[in-house]
Nucleic acid binder design. Structure first.
Lengths: 231, 231
DNA sequence: TTGACCCTCAAACGGTCGTTTGAAGGCTGC
DNA sequence: GCAGCCTTCAAACGACCGTTTGAGGGTCAA
């Protein structure tokens, strides 16, 4: 209707396929796979109802492609390897801060983290792809940091549980946001609040980790924590 | 078909209305509000399609009633007030243990915790009821414990953040179970594992809390923690 | 100019959903 | 026995869903 389509594909800027991917990402993230309708997606993308089936086969195909796109975006953010020269507590702080920002920041391409959080609660089948491409390396990175903090003598299952405790604190703020804002209407998730939250979780976790350290590591960690708190 | 219904309502044991509530609880918990179908619920309850509309008005009315029933069950479990004579760290341990068991235990009336976890991610409107009846008092109970541990000089927002860190660790195991079992196929959630998990979260959190204590409280807590770990 | 191919379009298809309908059976008080 | 009420039943209704169809305009090489 509005668009006469007499121009070459690259004219308007986004081809129909790309607009569908973008619109689908937001709508899938907001409503979940089942509750999102192809009519909504096509309408927001300014495309015809049949466009999804033409470009992606079916709704599930569109979802899979959106999901792979989200995974590739998430992978781009994993540039944390450059931090490997830093001391482990500082790497933990950055890891938590980046993860929280990734989960909570209401920035422009924020829908892919929502999408992933949805997939956690209600797997649709592409979950295994997600785990392999994004979650497992991300979680492994955290485990490496925790292991470096705890020292080499702490068994792997303890390291894993500690890493889970840290991830859980972060994810909770995302998954349970509807509850949290009702419990505390003052709660906001701007950049400053996210940084404060990251600082809290880092302090809480670094201190909590000392419970599982051999005594020698505890003293090193306490000194590092005191330095960090005074910075 | 199977049931001739020539007997009085109390004969078989459960009236149609009760069977609907029970079946709906499980199905809503497993599939969510949208994905659950009234045909599924009626079929499992051995009732006619029209039974839901007759007894509850519509699907939403059934959901609300199921939810209130779940809330009342959860309230029954809140008998933790008898613990108020115990020292705060022990109260925290019991709180975490009970909460984890409530979330993870695959026992018989387990669907109401699943149902609530679902409502957190995808509020349907009865969420506000839930918050008032169950979550707020539960969370307030935790805040009281944390406040008792941290001492009276620690500001309320710090207490609240610490309580959130603790709840987050617990809820994470429930919400992200699909991920966790894929990351670690050995993971199980039997009674013993839940107890071990509760012990881990308690130790991690009690230690993490010391980061926010005045020095006087830290020494008291360290002694209590050492006692608890040697028990 | 022609024909093959790509893409878009309005319209409809088959299926499933929540809900409604109206008949029918059982029970209770008169 | 009978009227009134409660409950259950099979069947259908209308709405919405994902998907398919077939026509038609567009581009581009031959």
């Amino acid at each position: 209707m509005i668009k006469t389509n007499t121009s070459p594909p690259s004219d308007i800027g986004q081809a129909t396929r790309d607009r569908l991917l973008s619109a689908a990402g937001q709508i899938f993230a907001d409503h979940g796979f089942q509750n999102a309708t192809v009519r909504d997606i096509c309408s927001r993308a300014g495309a015809n109802i049949a466009a999804i089936n033409y470009h992606f086969g079916d709704k599930q195909g569109l979802y899979s492609e959106v999901f792979l796109y989200a995974c590739s975006l998430a992978a781009d953010n994993d540039t944390a390897k450059a931090d490997s020269g830093l001391p482990a507590p500082e790497r933990l702080r950055r890891h938590i801060s980046a993860f929280l920002a990734h989960l909570l920041d209401e920035g422009r391409p924020a829908w892919h983290s929502k999408l992933m959080a949805r997939e956690l609660v209600e797997p649709t089948g592409v979950l295994d792809d997600l785990i392999g491409h994004s979650i497992r390396p991300h979680f492994q990175g955290l485990i490496d940091i925790v292991s470096a903090i705890l020292g080499p003598t702490v068994p792997a299952d303890v390291v894993q549980r500690c890493a889970t405790s840290i991830v859980g604190q972060c994810v909770f703020f995302h998954n349970s946001r509807p509850i949290l804002v009702r419990l505390d209407p003052e709660l906001r998730f701007g950049h400053d609040q996210i940084e404060a939250l990251a600082a809290h979780i880092t302090t809480f976790s670094l201190t909590g980790l000392t419970a599982f350290m051999p005594a020698r590591e505890v003293r090193k960690s306490a000194a590092a924590l005191k330095r960090a708190n005074h910075a």
